[in-house]
Simulated assay, not measured.
Amino acid sequence: MKLIECPRDAMQGLPDFIPTATKTAYLNTLLQVGFDTLDFGSFVSPKAIPQLRDTAEVLAGLDLSATRTKLLAIVANLRGAETALQHPEISYLGFPLSVSETFQRRNTNQSPAEALADVAAMHERCEQHGKTLVTYLSMGFGNPYGDAWNPEIVTDFTARLAALGVRIVALSDTIGASTATTIEPLFSALIPAFPAIEFGAHLHTTPTTWREKVAAAYAAGCRRFDGAIGGIGGCPMATDELTGNMATENLLAFLAEKGVDSGLNATAFGQARAAAGQVFGFH
């Protein structure tokens, strides 16, 4: 079981800038919990995501001396990837490849074909630098634009990524459109079809629909889940109304019901949740 905590996704759409020192202190708290990976920031245009314009400064303040957690940074183009590659502390680069052409253009100002070409180049550069590319198939369960979506389209995108040698693919429910009836069949088809790929679930959800989504992905064999403490966040490039991330607390509750050891330090998680409440203003 791999749990990926996503403070980057939690922060990116917030209108009020969180001071760099506050971000750094919060991330250092998260690094003590024992998550597999911390999606900590992004190297994208500050005009597009002003909240994360200080990612390099935040990175410089992180204490990585006593953590097993690996760092992931989101990039939107080759220029951002080259910047991220200059930081040896970063293990993973994440790129949002959309199965919706409308969203790809809104998010990275590219066609899907151009984005796939970038994925190929990024994967090659990551291999050269000893890093791993994580490709997010955004709008992986549908989109609000009327663009075509079906499981065959997702499978075709995955096949193209497999041909490039991409090893981690996260199916991303960017707007909370997924249901158990779309999640389970998709994972059930993809996981055995592409054994060289580690599949993850990046599910946005409402407080009342989270359980069915997690249960569907888990039943289909997914063992990599993204979450954000408090269920904060959403993609400001997708729709005007943000649908929050999967709450990490809910993921942990589900695993506990299944008798699965999350591998996290419960005391450190409690401290991190208290810190999140102060950063994001919830109890």
Results as ranks from 00 to 15, higher is better:
residue 2 K to G: 04
residue 7 P to I: 10
residue 8 R to Q: 06
residue 10 A to P: 01
residue 14 L to M: 14
residue 15 P to A: 14
residue 21 A to W: 04
residue 23 K to V: 12
residue 26 Y to N: 09
residue 27 L to H: 12
residue 28 N to M: 08
residue 28 N to S: 07
residue 31 L to T: 04
residue 32 Q to D: 09
residue 34 G to C: 09
residue 35 F to G: 08
residue 40 F to L: 07
residue 40 F to S: 02
residue 48 A to H: 08
residue 56 A to I: 02
residue 57 E to D: 15
residue 57 E to L: 07
residue 60 A to L: 08
residue 64 L to C: 04
residue 64 L to M: 09
residue 70 K to C: 08
residue 79 R to W: 03
residue 83 T to W: 06
residue 84 A to T: 07
residue 86 Q to D: 12
residue 94 G to T: 00
residue 106 R to C: 11
residue 108 T to Y: 02
residue 109 N to A: 15
residue 111 S to D: 06
residue 113 A to V: 12
residue 114 E to D: 14
residue 115 A to P: 06
residue 118 D to N: 14
residue 120 A to D: 06
residue 120 A to L: 05
residue 122 M to T: 11
residue 128 Q to N: 14
residue 130 G to I: 06
residue 130 G to D: 01
residue 131 K to Y: 02
residue 134 V to T: 05
residue 136 Y to D: 03
residue 137 L to M: 04
residue 146 G to Q: 01
residue 146 G to Y: 04
residue 149 W to G: 04
residue 151 P to Q: 01
residue 151 P to Y: 03
residue 153 I to W: 01
residue 155 T to P: 05
residue 156 D to N: 15
residue 160 R to V: 08
residue 162 A to V: 01
residue 163 A to T: 09
residue 167 R to C: 10
residue 167 R to N: 05
residue 169 V to Y: 08
residue 170 A to T: 04
residue 170 A to V: 02
residue 172 S to I: 02
residue 174 T to N: 08
residue 181 T to M: 14
residue 182 T to I: 08
residue 182 T to G: 10
residue 183 I to M: 10
residue 191 I to M: 06
residue 192 P to A: 10
residue 195 P to H: 00
residue 197 I to D: 14
residue 198 E to A: 15
residue 206 T to N: 13
residue 209 T to I: 06
residue 211 R to H: 14
residue 212 E to D: 12
residue 214 V to K: 12
residue 215 A to T: 13
residue 221 G to Q: 08
residue 226 D to P: 11
residue 227 G to P: 04
residue 227 G to R: 01
residue 231 G to Q: 05
residue 235 C to G: 06
residue 239 T to R: 06
residue 242 L to T: 01
residue 246 M to Y: 12
residue 246 M to N: 10
residue 247 A to H: 10
residue 253 A to H: 10
residue 253 A to Q: 15
residue 256 A to D: 15
residue 263 G to L: 01
residue 268 A to H: 13
residue 272 A to G: 13
residue 277 G to H: 04
residue 278 Q to R: 13
residue 279 V to C: 01
residue 283 H to M: 12
